[in-house]
Amino acid sequence: AVRKKSIPPLFVETLRFGFSRCVAPVGLSNKVLVFPYETDFSFVALIPQKEMGLTAFTLCMRVATELPEDRQIILFAYRTADYDELNVWREKDGRVSFYMSGDGIIFHLPPLTTFRTSLCLTWESRTGLAAFWVEGKRSTYQVYKPGHTIRPKGTVLLGQDPDKHLGGLEAVQSFVGEMSDLNMWDSVLSRSMIQAWHYGHKVPKGNIFDWGTMEYELNGNVMVVDDD
């Protein structure tokens, strides 16, 4: 699917304010987001704790899905008015990729399944070094867009890819399954910190997104349930 189409500023504002708003400033501690059905309207908008003008980041989440490996899935989408600033995908061949304002890079990782996987992504502009971490283990590094800066003032969505005009979200790219414990930092965490997060040990709170305290907005058939 085409992922680089322009998006009018109005759409960004509509995503933020144009649906029934459910803001939870107390966060999602001990909760999981359940996306039970394939739709073109169910998503969660995340409100960052600071502007996302980034030259480095660590993004972590726990994810489970029963969608077949030949089904493309959006795992994380951050978009400004004209660009996909940071999109994370499972591709149709089962590989996992991420894109920043143009062509992306693809990694061969263990498959996402019905059992929860801890998944992290790290990148820094200075060297361009990028890697995924699965169950606390790092993939090989790839060099991707050294010198690049992720732009601020966009919209972060879970469950859908906002690369279309208003109302044009695609069900065939939507996420179906469970997400939890999403955290994001504006730096590359060390191996020991990522492994500590994987095992559920205490780590510094994400200063962009912290699962325990972040605000979010629900739209459509997304459920917030106890993480038992």
Rank of each mutant, 00 (worst) to 15 (best):
E69S: 14
E69W: 07
R71W: 03
R71F: 00
R71S: 12
Q72D: 11
I73R: 06
I73S: 01
I73V: 15
I73N: 00
I73K: 09
I74V: 15
I74E: 06
I74D: 06
I74P: 08
I74F: 07
I74Q: 08
I74R: 03
I74T: 13
I74L: 02
L75S: 01
L75P: 01
L75N: 01
L75A: 08
L75T: 00
F76H: 00
F76A: 02
F76M: 03
F76N: 04
F76E: 01
A77P: 10
A77T: 08
A77I: 06
A77W: 01
A77C: 12
A77D: 12
A77S: 15
Y78S: 06
Y78W: 07
Y78D: 01
Y78Q: 08
Y78A: 02
Y78V: 07
R79G: 11
T80C: 02
T80Y: 00
A81R: 06
A81S: 12
D82K: 12
D84H: 02
D84N: 11
L86H: 04
L86W: 02
L86I: 09
L86M: 11
N87G: 11
N87Y: 03
N87D: 13
N87I: 15
V88W: 04
V88E: 03
V88G: 07
V88A: 01
V88L: 14
W89Q: 02
W89P: 05
W89Y: 15
R90K: 15
E91D: 15
E91Y: 03
E91W: 04
E91N: 15
E91I: 08
K92V: 13
D93S: 11
D93L: 02
D93A: 06
G94R: 04
G94P: 04
G94I: 07
G94S: 03
G94D: 01
R95T: 14
R95C: 10
R95W: 05
S97M: 04
S97Y: 03
S97K: 09
S97F: 00
F98M: 02
F98N: 05
Y99V: 09
Y99P: 02
Y99A: 01
Y99G: 00
Y99I: 06
Y99K: 05
Y99H: 14
